[in-house]
């Protein structure tokens, strides 16, 4: 079991509020991702759940039980740190077995559990090595192994992939997702990378300046962002925003059009501009267009298109995919 409830959690450091007021319900077995730019309070929120920080006010419940005043050791959660935080003086075996030792598990059971975890994570051959003899990906696995053996109520991940190179990150993303499908334990995952959020989450929590901007499934957030911030943060490349006359036409302060919903043409369209930089990815091409009076806009086209820098072009939005926002940035429906 592992449902997590936050009720009006408030946290300030030395009078400076970091989390003004957060309420959130995480169901048992869910994979929840906290996403937001750096300094948005997502890590603090995770550490509050872990018990590594205490709340200034508000209540945190695990399976309905108030754990606000409990220390991290007694909450029964497991955490994987960005730096992996492996114990450098212990072997992989001792690292993975450490939580069991702390729980006074009997030797035979502990050995079996460590062996099981090592097998699942492909670490069996490395059990007697020290962390410094492992690659980044292996260290990451040890950290996960250490979390698994505890059989925690929930796993907490604090930007676990940000120290890995790009290729490995994709692999680990899949491994963690598979692990979740296998264990069906609640996972709370913090990242600043919206791709990780989109690909892994059952539920995304978008944070900005300590505030929860929107909670929902990846596609919900993609289709119906509640405000300009979420609209801009979710989706890649970033959504184009246009203001002024272009927006007035749609009776909005700002309109947003995703690059994949923007059409480019040499002949005609809604907004005139000139081609700037073209980024050829093979399957797709991103064109950055200088639009007269509306700044730089991005267009995503499939396959290869032969627009050269400086070419005059026209852009027009897909009318069924125009997002409208009011003066304060809230979505208009």
């Amino acid at each position: 079991m592992g449902s997590i409830t936050l009720e009006h959690v408030h946290k300030s450091f030395g009078g400076h509020p970091v989390i003004p007021d957060a309420s959130l319900q995480i169901e048992d077995g869910e994979f929840v991702v906290f996403v937001g730019p750096s300094g948005c309070g997502k890590s603090t929120l995770l550490r509050l759940i872990a018990g590594l920080e205490d709340t200034t006010s508000g209540i945190i419940r695990l399976d309905g039980e108030d754990v606000t005043d409990q220390g991290p050791a007694s909450r029964g959660l497991a955490m994987v740190f960005q730096s992996y935080a492996l114990y450098p003086h212990m072997t992989v075996r001792q690292n993975i077995g450490f939580p069991l030792k702390m729980a006074n598990t009997d030797k035979a059971t502990a050995e079996r559990k460590v062996a099981d975890a090592a097998r699942v994570l492909n670490l069996t051959d490395y059990l007697d090595r020290k962390p410094r003899e492992l690659s980044g990906g292996q260290r990451q696995r040890v950290a996960i192994g250490r979390a698994i053996v505890r059989q925690p109520k929930a796993f907490l991940f604090d930007e676990p992939l940000s120290n890995l190179d790009a290729a490995l990150r994709v692999n680990m993303r899949i491994e963690i997702t598979e692990l979740h499908q296998q264990l069906k334990t609640t996972m709370v995952y913090v990242t600043h990378d919206q791709v990780e959020a989109m690909t892994m989450a059952d539920k995304i929590v978008v944070l900005n300046a300590g505030r929860i901007e929107q909670v929902g499934s990846p596609m919900e957030l993609y289709r119906n962002p509640a405000n300009k911030f979420v609209a801009g943060f979710i989706g890649s490349p970033r959504m184009n925003f246009l203001e002024g006359p272009a927006a007035d036409k749609y009776r909005a302060a700002t309109i947003g059009v995703r690059p994949e919903h923007m059409r480019i043409s040499r002949e005609s369209g809604e907004w005139a501009g000139r081609v700037g930089v073209a980024e050829h990815l093979g399957s797709d091409t991103f064109f950055h267009i200088h639009v007269d009076g509306a700044g730089m806009q991005t267009v995503r086209t499939e396959g290869e298109k032969d627009f050269a820098p400086g070419d005059p072009v026209w852009l027009s939005p897909d009318p069924s995919h125009i997002y409208r926002f009011d003066q304060s940035g809230l979505a208009l429906r």
Partner: peptide, 12 residues
């Protein structure tokens, strides 16, 4: 981090 990891691992 490492001390916090120990705390998370149940070390008093």
């Amino acid at each position: 981090d490492i001390l916090e990891a120990a705390r998370m691992d149940g070390a008093i």
